[in-house]
Design a protein around this nucleic acid. Structure first.
Lengths: 352, 352
DNA sequence: GCGACGATTGATATCGATATCATTTCTCCT
DNA sequence: AGGAGAAATGATATCGATATCAATCGTCGC
C-alpha cells in the first residue's frame, strides 16, 4: 500500500507531490497553520499541531525546498576545509552535499590553510552571507575564530573536534574510545610492546587519542616507555621520521599505532624498506579509515568514522541554525557518531 | 533614508537582485520575451533579442535558478563514480557541486563497482528520473550502457575517456599529449632507460598514455625493450608488483613512468624498500595529480588535470542536455581540458 | 484586398511555500 | 462585565521565474 519513503525524496517523474495545501485541507486548517507547525512557530495550539502532524504523516508530506527558497532565500552554509589531500574529504563532501540537496541549502566550500590566517577564509564566508559555518579542527577550537563568528552573528558547527566548546553545536566521535578500542585490539592479539605515533598536538583529537591509548595500556598493566611514543604531525612525511625512529630502536615494538592513516601508511612504507614484514613481524594500526588505508598493501587496520553521515548531520544542524535567529539554545546539540574497528591485513599476533 | 524598505524585510543583507521583470522594463518588452530570449526560444525577432541581451548585460542580470525550478522542476543529473578511493574524487565532487549549485540542478551521485554490473546503477539513476548522466571510464566506453541510456532517452556525458564516441558529449584530456609531455620531461633530464607501467587495459586512457609514451620515445630515437613495459591495473598493489619486476632487472631503468599516481606511489615505496634513493638513483613519474602525489615523500612529478573545472563543465553540459529535448545535436560537444606538468621531487637527472 | 497561417509578443495563471497584516479567541485583571 | 493584551488562526500578497493561451503583425496566395 504505502509507497516507499525514498520515492518522495526524489521528486522524479512528477510524482503527484503532496503540498502544504493538501495537508491543510486534510487537517482542516489553513495552510499558514501547517507552515507554522513545520517551522516550529511558538504559538500553535497543541490540538492544531497534533492534527497537522497527523495529516503530514498520513499523506507523507515532504516540504518542497525549492518553493520555500523562493521566499526565504536559500539558507547558506559555509564549510571550511583545511587539507585538500589525504583526508576523508570526498566522503565528507559526499555526505554534506547529499544532505544539502535534500534540505535545499547552499554550501559554500572555502579552502583554508593554517598558515595564511584562517580568519581570512572565515571573513570571506561571512561576507558571502552564510548563516552558519561548519568548522573542522583545529579551527573549531580557536577562540579567535569563534569570537569572529559570534560578532557576525554566524553560528559555528564544529566538526570532529575532541573538545567541543559547550555552547557550540558539534558533530564528533569519541576519540578516546576509538583509540582505546584499537589499543585493546592490539593487546588482545598478544602485543605488549606497542608504540604510538602522536598527531599534531594543536588538534584536540590527537591528544585525546593519545590519552585513550595510554589509559588502555595502563589498564592492561602494560608499560609505555617514553621511547615508544614519538612525535608526529598527521602528515605522511612526519610518519616517515617517526617510523625510522621507532624501527631503529634496539628493543623494537611489535606493533605501532599511528594517530592517523597517513602516518600509518608511512610506517608501512618504512617497514617495507627495512625488510620488516607486515603484519608478521610488525603490526601497524591507523585511525580515520581514509582512502589510503585501503589503497596501500597490506591494507590498514584502522578506526572507521562514518564521515559522510557525520557531514550530513553537521550540514543539517548548520542549516537549522542558519535559519533561526540564533540565541535559540535549544537547537545547540552535540552529536557523537559511532566508530567501527576495521580489522584488515596490517595487524596480526606478534611472531613467536 | 538610504535603504529601500524591502531590505529590512529580508533577513540578512541580500542585495537587490535584478529580476526578469527589471530587464523587461529596461528593455521595454514583456517579461515573457525576456524569458524566451534566455531560453533560446526560436521565434524571437532579432531586434527584440538584441534589446534584451543589451539590457541583461547592462543590468548584470543573472537568472534565479530557484525561482525557475519552481516551474520547471529541478534538472536532475546523475553522476556515476566507480572508485571511492585514491582518485580525484574530492576534486571532482567539488567542481561538480559548485556548478550544480550555480545553475541549480540536482546531482544524484551513484556509486558503482565494475563487478556487480554497472547497469544496475544506471537503471537506478534512470528510474530516479535524471535527464543526463556523467559517466566515468570505463563505463563511458561501454556500448551496452550507452544503448541503455539511449533507450531511456537519457543523455550521456562521458568524462575523461580517451576515445569519446562521436555522438556523445565528452569532457576529457589529451592522454596521448600528457604522456608525451611527461616522457619528454624525462628525456630532457637525460634519461635513456625509461620504463613504463601500464594501466588497466580496459580503460582507453591507459592505452592512449602508453601510445604517447612510445611515440615520444620513438621520436627521440630511444629504444623501449619489452622488459621495460610491464602490466599494471591502476591500483597501488599492481604497482608494487610492477615495481618489483622493473627494479629487479639486471639493467635497471633510471626512470619509471607509471600510468597513474597510485602505481607511482607504489613504485616509490618499493624503491624505498630496496634502498634505492629517489630521485638520485631513480626518477619516478606519475599521472593524474591525485592527492597521494603530494602526500607521499618525495612528492611525485606528475601530470595535473584540472579535474574540478572539468567536472563543472561536465555537469553544465549534462544539465543543458537534461533540459533539452535531446535530438538537438548542436549541443553535443567535445571539451578538451588543459594539462600541466607538475615537476616535484621525484624526478631528476640520472646519476653520473 | 481578403482570409490563412505562421511569426512574434503579451496578459494572466501558476508553482509551493512564506511574509504580512487582519481577525478571532482566550485570559486575566480591575 | 468590560476590556486590554496575548495567543492562535486565516486571507491575501508575494517570491521570480515559466506555461498557456490569446492577441497582434506580416506576408503570401488567390
Amino acid at each position: 500500500m504505502g509507497r516507499p519513503a525514498w520515492e518522495s525524496l526524489l521528486s522524479g517523474k512528477r510524482r503527484p507531490s503532496v503540498t502544504l495545501h493538501d495537508v491543510a485541507k486534510h487537517a482542516g486548517v489553513s495552510s499558514m497553520t501547517v507552515s507554522r507547525v513545520i517551522n516550529d512557530y511558538a504559538f500553535i495550539s497543541e490540538a492544531a499541531r497534533a492534527k497537522v502532524l497527523k495529516s503530514i504523516d498520513e499523506l507523507g508530506y515532504r516540504p518542497n525546498a525549492v518553493a520555500r527558497a523562493t521566499r526565504t532565500g536559500v539558507a547558506q552554509v559555509g564549510v571550511l576545509y583545511s587539507n585538500p589531500n589525504s583526508s576523508n574529504l570526498s566522503a565528507f563532501l559526499m555526505g554534506a552535499f547529499r544532505k544539502a540537496g535534500e534540505i535545499g541549502c547552499q554550501l559554500l566550500i572555502e579552502p583554508t590553510a593554517a598558515h595564511p590566517a584562517p580568519a581570512r577564509a572565515v571573513v570571506k564566508l561571512i561576507e558571502a552571507g552564510v548563516g552558519a559555518v561548519v568548522l573542522p579542527p583545529p579551527l573549531c577550537d580557536d577562540p579567535k575564530i569563534l569570537k569572529l563568528l559570534a560578532a557576525a552573528g554566524v553560528e559555528p558547527v564544529s566538526f570532529t573536534t575532541a573538545r567541543p566548546s559547550p555552547g557550540v553545536t558539534s558533530v564528533a566521535i569519541d576519540d578516546f574510545a576509538g583509540a582505546a578500542m584499537m589499543t585493546r585490539h592490539l593487546i588482545e592479539l598478544g602485543h605488549v610492546d606497542i608504540a604510538f605515533v602522536r598527531g599534531d598536538p594543536t588538534h584536540s583529537t590527537a591528544t585525546r587519542r593519545e590519552e585513550g591509548f595510554r589509559a588502555t595500556m595502563a589498564q592492561a598493566g602494560l608499560a609505555v616507555p617514553d621511547a615508544h611514543v614519538v612525535e608526529g604531525a598527521f602528515t605522511y612525511r612526519s610518519g616517515l621520521t617517526a617510523a625510522r625512529q621507532l624501527l631503529g630502536l634496539r628493543r623494537r615494538p611489535s606493533a605501532i599505532f599511528a594517530c592517523n592513516d597517513d602516518m600509518a601508511a608511512a610506517v608501512s612504507a618504512v617497514a617495507h624498506g627495512l625488510g620488516i614484514a607486515v603484519p608478521t613481524e610488525l603490526s601497524i594500526a591507523g585511525f580515520d579509515d581514509t582512502p589510503v588505508a585501503s589503497t596501500i598493501w597490506p591494507q590498514l587496520t584502522t578506526i572507521h568514522q562514518p564521515i559522510a553521515d557525520m557531514a550530513a548531520t553537521a550540514v543539517e544542524l548548520a542549516a537549522g541554525l542558519a535559519r533561526r535567529d540564533a540565541d535559540d539554545d535549544r537547537s545547540r546539540k552535540h552529536v557523537l557518531a559511532d566508530l567501527t574497528l576495521m580489522v584488515r591485513q596490517s595487524t596480526a599476533s606478534p611472531a613467536g
